[in-house]
Amino acid sequence: MDYYRVLGLDPKLQLDLNELQQLFYARSRQLHPDRFARAEASVRDAALIESSLLNDAYRTLRDPLARAEYILKENGFDIGLQGTKDVPPELLEEVFDLNMALEELKAGDESARPQLSAARDNFEAMLAKSSAELDGLFAEYDQHPGPEPLKPIRALLNRRRYIQNLLRDVHGYLSN
């Protein structure tokens, strides 16, 4: 858990973003290459590696999804693109309706447009709801860290990624 170590943090999924930023600034003051401009080459190299790690860590940990993916990866989960092609079963019905509307619009049937907008709103609401759900799962993991509570997190992340890809397509069609 290098990202947590370099910031001096416990590996928790729930983080206070303000506190994270203050830690990042404080550590930057210590580690930034500017502080070692006159040091010998080996020290400069070490500062470069450590400060890049610090920046990578802050960039990852300040985003809850990237943070969760990092924890999953460090716990040996494969977080590649797996599961993004298979429709999550609970979404089957919505996805079917959406694809119908998309086909109609592609065929030039403009009347499908409102239906598509409705689908977009629906999926956006789902994303918002899943964020709240994720918060609960994060709290559970922080109380009982281990691979078991990470499984529902991975499933939720996959579902989110699937919805995000769908939304990107829908936005594309609606703006054309």
Binding site: P33, L48, I49, S51, S52, L53, N55, D56, Y58, R59
Partner: peptide
């Protein structure tokens, strides 16, 4: 817009 130094 990644803060530098940055690595991958």
């Amino acid at each position: 817009n990644s803060t530098i130094p940055a690595s991958e």
